[in-house]
């Protein structure tokens, strides 16, 4: 319950934070809302020697309408994302997914960037990033680069961010007419983390599904897209039959193990059931 000692460095700007990152080499951790980091520090699973507080950097938490995309600062809190009018209007799936994170108190403090950089394999947001085709903006000593969500999550608690880099912004393509999304989560009754979470975003035109992205969290070492499901949707009629046929592929290529959360067969089933339910709702939203 008491973290080990560390030095605390409030950063006034992104440049300031990058300079501190460079100065302390491998030792520092970035602190935004702290809701991924502080819990592991309290249990002493992590004991960083330096914490760089990026939670006080002005404008890093802004949520703005970038026209074709919604731009969300890395330190925007989950609650801000949930209640943001621009998010709700242009990328409602993101608001829906963010509303499932933790509990209201955690959402009041935790940040979008913190959660994504932590890359918990059972976190909600990564599924949304994949389904929405988001772009993550990383800033480092060499400047700024963009990373597609598809390339961002690389392994358990591991991302494509380089040492010395920080996540500064998330850009989520705006959705228009004919697009619908939904998130179906089966939460662990204790932790609230997703046993499985399926985020689906589909585009329907003239009764045909023209594009679909399905992100899955919880059942693998990292959030991933369900390519076989997406493939079984694209170009097909926007019907329940299409959804059922596509959802049957939700566990294709995935390897599950039996553990305390259930058998491998049960997990495959959950992937299929929640994929079907998410797709059904996404289609309904797209054609509403």
């Amino acid at each position: 319950m008491y973290p080990a000692s560390f030095e605390y460095h409030p950063a006034a700007s992104v440049q300031d934070a990058l300079a501190l990152l460079a100065k302390y080499g491998d030792e520092p951790k970035l602190l935004a809302g702290g809701h991924s980091l502080i819990p592991v520090m309290k249990l002493r699973f992590a004991s960083p020697a330096h914490l760089i507080d990026i939670g006080r950097i002005p404008a890093l938490s802004a949520i703005t309408d970038g026209g074709s995309a919604v731009h969300i600062g890395a330190t925007a809190r989950h609650a801000s994302v949930v209640s943001s009018p621009v998010v709700r209007q242009k990328v409602p799936l993101l608001a829906e997914v963010a509303s499932h994170i933790g509990d209201p108190l955690i959402r009041n403090m935790g940040t979008i960037g913190g959660s994504l950089a932590h890359a918990d394999p059972a976190a909600d947001l990564p599924a949304a990033m994949l389904a929405l085709g988001a772009t993550l903006v990383a800033t480092g000593p060499a400047g700024t680069r963009t990373i597609a969500a598809d390339d961002f999550f690389t392994d358990v608690f591991t991302t494509a961010l380089h040492p010395g880099e920080m996540l500064t912004e998330i850009r989520v393509p705006a959705r228009g007419a004919g697009s619908g999304g939904a998130y179906e989560k089966n939460p662990d009754p204790a932790s609230g983390y997703a046993i499985v979470g399926i985020a689906a975003q589909v585009q329907v035109s003239g009764g045909t599904i023209t594009a679909a992205r399905v992100g899955m969290t919880g059942l693998g070492p990292k959030a991933m897209r369900l390519a076989a499901v997406e493939g079984a949707l694209t170009g097909k009629p926007a019907t329940a039959a299409t959804v059922a046929a596509a959802a049957a592929h939700a566990a294709d290529g995935l390897v599950f193990v039996d553990d305390a959360r259930g058998s491998a067969a049960y997990k495959g089933n959950l992937a299929r059931v929640h994929t079907r339910r998410a797709l059904a709702r996404a289609l309904a939203a797209a054609t509403a």
Binding site: M1, L31, I38, P39
Partner: peptide, 28 residues
């Protein structure tokens, strides 16, 4: 000690937070 029970809930700038998962320096 895992940020779940909420017995430590306070308002920080008007929003409910779990004060066991906030550093005092963050409340500066």
């Amino acid at each position: 000690d895992t940020s779940q029970c909420g017995a430590c809930t306070v308002l920080l700038d008007g929003r409910g937070v779990k004060s066991c998962t906030v550093l005092a320096v963050q409340a500066n």
